[in-house]
Design a protein around this nucleic acid. Structure first.
Length: 649
DNA sequence: GTAGCAGTTGAAACG
DNA sequence: GCGTTTCAACTGCTA
């Protein structure tokens, strides 16, 4: 019998863009490979089908560049090989061309990733390639958490703690490798690129030019380089936050240097208004991309807590508690799959008849990424919320910070999420989650969706009468309104007495402070004065309406998988004039079926200016997912038809 | 089965 | 100005 040839390994980097504490990379090296290809597959799912703004793209490219440089430091012949094709079609060809024996990667329980990985594993099996998968993305393996939670999604922190206890300890971090094998031949001449279908492109709105990242398999210069923002056709990033393992480890060590901060951290006591520096760690984007290991973070903190002489904080409010919440959301997502990220067909998520409900694909029961405009007024609320011109400075400052910098404090996220859903606009949390998905550097489907469900009181949390005031809440942290002045500079000169409710300032003062409070946010200046919008509604009034709506919806008590939600008969249970698209008795499901439409708007006699603005702002939106629309375009897209279009020769 | 109580992060009124 | 109580009343866990 001939001796077994030494392994030829592809290490597939995904959301583990680091060398330190990587169980999967360690496993790859333990195979003692003769060659190791560090590969990143440029997955069209993320290029086109997941909402991702320029800031997060930039963060990803930072992470990749940093990782590639670190790989080269360990072995000057090696680097990160970015290959421009979907992994499902690319890997079978690479296995053959590079005579691969093993494929190694870190486990990912995200709904799309799981489907993608199953497909890749199947291809590997056909090619006789051995697949090694190691957990490394979370403190606990989400599937194990769920198993220890009696097979149920982890819906509370106590469930996570109990399940974690029966799993055992959290793994200790592993040191970075001190060497890496050479990559083998990287010739791709015999490989025909399978180009992805580019439609729908959920990111077309943020591209200034055409998207060219698939023009050549190994990149424009054939050197496997990390793509540029220009290749992606993206606008320049505006975030000051930087990606990469090097930056992440520096940030972590700086945080851990301050032992009192680390040991006594209590999330509810950190100020959402702090911006220079921020009150929390800013490490969440690094956890998302894996440029920081969550266990490295956990043990870094826990070692300090164990040695701390004073009174250390405890989960859930402590730093390690924050990481447990992350695991809780991963566990919930792992158990529920795609349905976790939506209300429709989700057994854990309460049904509330919000405005702007998602359209549903009847063939998949999944949200399509488009929504029904059941009320022009609610739509205007949503658009003004998104653009940071609601007329409530606290909300607007947060939304502008989010858009510019890709990060806002967790309590700030609470404030804007409550405001959009149960505590103001009564708009579907799925709309808000989509905006966060596009703009947040740290966007993680499990955590984002989980937090939106929490704040909208549809899952995880239920005390809907606890409603964040856009005026009272920020005063607790920032009486002077420094934060608002930073992000809403038109209010720079306002007296602190009016900073959170500038519409109350006398006209003479408004003029003296150089900013008039008027209009709906469509004008920026008038003559010599700057202009800031009037509040888009009376908050106290909206709060009452929302509370009444929530109370009724809780009484009705439907969840996303209730047959009456699925078939639309839920409407019989609500008054016709209740808040939300409740009118009528039958026909439309809980969230609307694609291609169906209702006309129950106009009851409020919208002013024509609002209508015009609304039409202006929504142009193009209604065409997405229309009659000729694609089957599915949400970020949860499956593999259907996206990787089959061949390059034309 | 059920009562009692706690729950990461509220607001307003009161002393 | 600050700490405490009350408001209104949810779910889920524990005993």
């Amino acid at each position: 019998m001939p001796p077994t040839p030494p392994p030829r390994v592809i290490y597939w980097f995904r959301t583990d863009l680091r060398l330190h504490d990587s169980p999967a990379l360690t496993a790859a090296l333990d195979l003692h490979p003769s060659v190791l290809y560090p590969v990143w597959t440029w997955d069209p799912h993320y290029v086109y089908r997941a909402r991702c703004g320029p800031n997060r793209w930039k963060f990803l490219l930072d992470c990749q560049s940093d990782l590639s440089a670190s790989i080269t430091k360990l072995n000057p012949k090696s680097k990160l090989l970015v290959i421009r094709e979907a992994p499902q079609t690319l890997f079978p060809k690479l296995f053959k061309a590079w005579r691969i024996t093993h494929l190694v990667f870190e486990k990912d329980s995200d709904a799309y990733a799981r489907e993608r990985d199953e497909s890749v594993i199947e291809e590997a099996r056909k090619a006789g390639v051995e697949v090694v998968v190691k957990m490394g993305r979370t403190l606990y393996d989400p599937e194990e958490l769920v198993r220890e939670n009696k097979g149920k999604p982890t819906m509370s922190i106590s469930q996570v703690q109990a399940a974690g206890k029966s799993i055992g300890g959290i793994a200790s971090p592993i040191a970075s490798p001190t060497w890496l094998p050479d990559p083998g031949e990287t010739d791709l001449d015999d490989i025909e690129q399978t180009r992805p279908g580019t439609e729908p492109d959920l990111n077309s709105g943020v591209r200034k030019g055409s998207e060219k990242s698939y023009e050549r398999l190994a990149g424009p210069n054939g050197d496997f380089a990390v793509p540029t923002m220009e290749e992606l056709g993206l606008e320049e990033a505006t975030t000051p936050h930087r990606g990469g393992e090097t930056v992440a480890l520096e940030m972590l060590s700086k945080i851990l240097e301050d032992k009192t901060y680390t040991a006594t951290f209590e999330k509810p006591n950190t100020a959402p208004t702090a911006f220079d520096p921020q009150a929390t760690t800013l490490l969440s984007p690094h956890l998302h991309f894996g440029s920081l290991s969550v266990r490295q973070f956990y043990w870094g903190v826990q070692d300090i807590v164990d040695a701390y002489k004073g009174k250390a904080s405890q989960p859930p409010t402590s730093l390690t508690g924050q990481l447990l919440f992350r695991d809780m959301y991963f566990g919930a997502q792992s158990a529920l799959g795609y349905s976790f990220a939506q209300t429709y067909n989700n057994p854990q998520c309460r049904f509330i008849p919000w405005h702007l409900p998602s359209r549903i694909s009847p063939s998949t029961n999944l949200i399509t990424g488009t929504y029904l405009i059941d009320s022009a007024r609610a739509h205007l609320f949503f658009l003004r919320w998104k653009e940071g011109r609601t007329g409530f400075p606290w909300i607007d400052a947060l939304m502008r910070q989010l858009k510019q910098e890709g990060w806002i404090h967790h309590l700030g996220r609470h404030a804007v999420a409550c405001f959009l859903t149960r505590g103001g606009c009564y708009v579907d949390w799925e709309r808000g989650a989509e905006v966060f998905e596009e703009w947040l550097l740290d966007h993680e489907t499990a955590c984002n969706v989980g937090n939106w469900q929490w704040l909208s009181c549809t899952a995880f949390f239920a005390q809907f009468y606890r409603c964040y005031s856009p005026v009272a809440f920020p005063k607790k942290w920032d009486k002077e309104g420094k934060f608002v002045r930073r992000y809403c500079p038109e209010l720079l000169n306002y007296n602190h007495k009016y900073i959170y409710e500038p519409w109350k300032a006398p006209i003479a003062d408004q003029k003296a402070w150089g900013c008039l409070i008027k209009g709906d946010g469509e004008m920026m200046e008038e003559g010599e004065f700057r202009v800031y919008p009037k509040p888009m509604f009376d908050f106290a009034e909206r709060r009452e309406i929302c509370l009444k709506g929530m109370k009724k919806a809780y009484e009705v008590g439907l969840h996303g998988n209730d047959p009456r939600v699925l078939d639309g008969s839920w409407r019989k249970l609500f008054e016709d004039d209740a808040e939300g698209p409740t009118e009528g008795e039958s026909g439309l499901p809980g969230a609307m079926v694609e291609d169906e439409d209702v006309d129950n708007d106009g009851a409020h006699g919208e002013e024509s200016a609002l209508e015009v603005e609304q039409k202006k702002m929504t142009r193009g939106k209604k065409t997405v997912g229309g009659k000729n629309g694609h089957k599915r375009d949400a970020s949860q897209t499956t593999l259907d038809a996206m990787v089959t279009r061949k390059k034309k020769k």
